[in-house]
């Protein structure tokens, strides 16, 4: 009984400390890369605006799988009793989505694209519905990169 409690508290604090640290680090890196990629425009519009000159288009994809930490799961479990915003999961989804978008942008930037149109974001849980499953979500972002064709 006592051992269980100790293990539980150890997991909880490990989740809190490492989860927090990871999240801060991740958000910092996301912000830096978003600044660096600011020039590359992303649209959810279906078709690109009329382009001067010839362009090529290619499908670009980015994805990211993130796991819940023990602390977040616990807090979300508590939140389930009272209802309301589950902030601990909101930040997690935000991280996953921005990371996926950044990876998509990265792929497009390597091709020399000027914009990405028709961007779709899809979220799925890859761990299934099992009770003891690893809690993780996958976010996939994909769109069409518009690359100006090189002259000459």
């Amino acid at each position: 009984m006592n051992v269980d409690l100790v293990v539980f508290l150890a997991l909880l604090s490990a989740g809190y400390v490492f989860g927090r640290y990871n999240e801060r680090k991740h958000f910092r890196s996301i912000q830096e890369r978003e600044q660096a990629m600011r020039e590359l425009l992303v649209f959810s519009e279906r078709l690109p605006p009329p382009q001067p000159g010839a362009v090529e288009c290619t499908l670009v994809v980015g994805s990211c799988v993130v796991a819940f930490d023990y602390f977040k799961s616990f807090v979300a479990g508590l939140r389930n009793l009272f209802g309301g915003r589950v902030t601990s999961y909101e930040t997690l989804m935000d991280r996953a989505r921005r990371e996926a978008l950044l990876r998509m942008k990265q792929e497009a930037a390597e091709l020399g694209a000027t914009m990405i149109v028709n961007v779709k974001i899809e979220t799925s849980s890859i761990s299934g519905e099992a009770a003891n499953a690893t809690g993780s979500v996958e976010v996939m972002a994909y769109g069409t990169a518009i690359v100006p064709r090189q002259r000459g």
């Binding site: 989860g19 990871n22 994805s63 799988v65 930490d69 996939m140």
Partner: peptide, 26 residues
Amino acid sequence: KDIMAGFKNIFGGELKAYTELMQEAR
């Protein structure tokens, strides 16, 4: 890899193995 992912559930963070899995699948 699944067991490692289980550990990740304590500390949180990205599951690189699963990201890779999805990329291969795609």
